[in-house]
Amino acid sequence: MVHLAHQFAFESDMVTADMVEVTEFPHLGQRYGVRGVPKTVANEHSAADGALPEAQFLERILATAGLGGSA
């Protein structure tokens, strides 16, 4: 999921994408309610738990961030 998020960042100037190793930043894990990995947060909102294929992952994050797509 990290590489896919990085591919999105590479493709679009609007997208920035961080890998966050949660055991080193437990406060962020707590803030976003990370109980399993990979977990993706889009513009501060929980968007996807687990791994998803490219098209679904994009749909999910766009819908979560209110940037189009359907949940």
């Binding site: 609007m14 997208v15 920035t16 994408a17 961080d18 962020l28 990370v34 990995v37 961030a65 940037l67």
Partner: peptide, 13 residues
């Protein structure tokens, strides 16, 4: 995309 999108992907080692 017309607005910024910030993704954070949480992982463990």
């Amino acid at each position: 995309l017309a607005n910024p999108l910030h993704l954070q992907v949480f992982v463990t080692p």
